Amino acid sequence: MKTDTKISGSGKIGQGEYNLIKISGSGAIEGPVTFETFKVSGSCKVCPNAALEGNEMHISGSIHSQSEIKVNTLHVSGSLHSENDMKVRSLKASGSCHLQGKIYADEIYVSGSLKSSEEVNADIVEIRGMATLNDLFGEQITFIPENCNSFNFFRFAKHRKLSNVKNIECTTLEAGCLQCDTISAKNILLTDGCVVNHIQCDGTLSYDSTCQIGTVEGNCAQKLLS
C-alpha cells in the first residue's frame, strides 16, 4: 500500500512507493522513489541513484537532482537544477530551470527561464521568458518573450537580452528576440531583432527589418515583412 510522507523540518526519504511526497522544510531523497504527487515548497536534494518517477511534480521551492526524473507533468514556479536526464510529458516553468542532462518532452512552456547544456527535445516548445540552450529539437517552436515587440525594440534595445540557442531543428519556428547560430526548419518567422548566423530552409522564410541574418541555404521563399 502506498503511503504519504512529509518533511516540514529536515529529514531524509528512502526508497519506496508513495502516494504523496511533500517537502516544506529541507529534505533529501536517498533512494529511488515512485509517487503520485511530489510537492516541494522548501528545499530538496536528490542523491545519485535515487531516480524519481511518478505522475506529477510541483516545485515552488528549490530542488537539486543528481538522478533521472521521469514524470507526466512537471510544474516549476521555484527553482529546478537537474544534473541528469529528464523525461516528461509536460513541463511548465514560470520559475528557473537549469538542466545539465537531456530532456525529452511532449510539450514545454516557459515563462520564466530555461538553461540547458544538453539536448532539449519536445514536440511543442513555447518560450515566453528567457532561454539559453545548446541543441533544441522539435516540431513547433516559439520564442515570444513578454514585451518583445517591434514598437519598443529600438527604444529599449540596449537594455534587453536575447534568448540564445546554438542550434535549432524543427518543422515550424516563430521567434522574436532570439540569437541563434544555426536554424534548420521548413517554415520560419523571425521578428524583433533576431540574430541568426546560418539558416537552412526548404519552405518559407519571413523576417522583419530589425533582424540580422547571415547565410541562407535551401529552396525557400524569402519575404521581408513591412
Rank of each mutant, 00 (worst) to 15 (best):
L190F: 09
K115Y: 02
N134E: 14
G218Q: 02
N167K: 15
C170L: 12
A51E: 07
G14K: 04
L162N: 14
S60E: 12
R128A: 00
H75K: 09
S163M: 12
L189S: 14
H64A: 06
E83F: 14
E107F: 00
N152K: 13
L91G: 03
K22N: 14
F154P: 00
Q140D: 09
I124Q: 06
H75C: 05
G112Y: 03
S67D: 03
D181Y: 13
A122N: 07
S24T: 15
G138Y: 07
L178Q: 06
L114V: 05
S184E: 15
C220D: 02
C148K: 11
N197F: 05
E56M: 05
H75A: 08
L189I: 13
F156Y: 13
S94F: 06
T132I: 07
F143N: 01
S82L: 09
K39P: 00
T210C: 07
A157L: 11
G27D: 05
K70G: 02
A175K: 07
L225Y: 01
H159S: 12
L162G: 03
L80V: 10
N219E: 13
G176W: 04
N121L: 02
E169V: 05
D202L: 08
G14Y: 04
N152E: 05
Q212H: 11
G112R: 05
K223M: 05
G95D: 03
S77E: 14
S10Y: 09
N19G: 00
A50K: 08
Q200K: 13
C220N: 05
T215I: 08
L114P: 02
S226K: 10
K223A: 04
L178G: 10
C44I: 04
F38K: 10
C211W: 01
K102Q: 15
D123T: 12
S116I: 03
L162D: 11
K87R: 09
D4Q: 02
S43C: 02
S26Q: 12
C170V: 08
L20K: 13
A131V: 03
G27W: 11
Q66Y: 12
G25K: 02
G78A: 07
T34L: 08
C201F: 06
M86S: 11
C211R: 01
F153K: 10
I59V: 14
M57A: 08
L133G: 04
P32L: 12
S116E: 01
G203K: 04
I13W: 00
Q179H: 09
I183K: 08
A105S: 12
S65M: 06
S8T: 08
L114G: 00
E83R: 15
C177E: 11
L20G: 00
K158F: 09
S111D: 03
E36A: 11
Q200S: 12
A122Q: 08
G112T: 03
N147W: 05
E119S: 04
L178F: 13
M1I: 10
Q15L: 07
T172H: 09
A122Y: 02
S82N: 15
S79K: 15
L52A: 07
R89A: 10
V120H: 06
A28E: 15
V125I: 15
